[in-house]
Amino acid sequence: MSAVAIEGVWKFYGDYPALRDVRLEAERGACLALIGRNGAGKTTLLRVVAGFSRPGRGKVQIFGNEPRETETRRQMGFIGHGISVYDELSAFENLMLYAKLYNLPNPKKSAMEWLERTGLERVRNGLVREFSRGMRQRLAVARAFLHEPTVLLLDEPFTALDDKAITVLQKLLKEALAAGKTIVMSTHQLREALELATHVALLNRGQVAFHGPRTPEMVSDPGYVYARYGEG
């Protein structure tokens, strides 16, 4: 059973199909990079996989379950465009909030552990609105990893990050892959993404234009996939 199976997914905005018959799979321990131009449907697809919006046709299965099932959501980590933490709460309070929502056995311990892993334990009682950009992003990473998800969905994870946050995130993602977790990410940062990716899918106007394992050519020339398969 694949970790993430996208089976013939269509998504409509009115009559306009933003996703057309998308079929993709990611095995346990795989990292699937979704690439494509703006408006190709990468974010839409990730939101459907995450269960934020329902597909018009087709279905998504995460370890054989629907995305909206409680059990699935417990296994899923999502990093979107925003940092998804509250400016008015402290770093610790933010992580405690999510730890409680995910019903972690020891919320305090998990929160402290992730503050430490993202280098925020010194400022744990500071309000997020006083944080620098980099600190906010690291907290966002801590928030997404807090409940030890087995499937990670990342929407443009490297775009807004500073160097330190990129380092933290890449280290975490490599560890996650090594531990057999599954990653699906959309990205423009081909170099960072292709280094991690085991598979690549190119979306073009809501359709899968290419899907296959990452090859050495792609790493040496990030424009290779586009040149070869896309945008004719």
Binding site: G51, R73, R74, G80, S84, V85, Y98, L101, R143
Partner: peptide, 8 residues
């Protein structure tokens, strides 16, 4: 998004 993603 994060709240909707959470198992609640």
């Amino acid at each position: 998004d994060a709240l909707i993603a959470a198992p609640i």
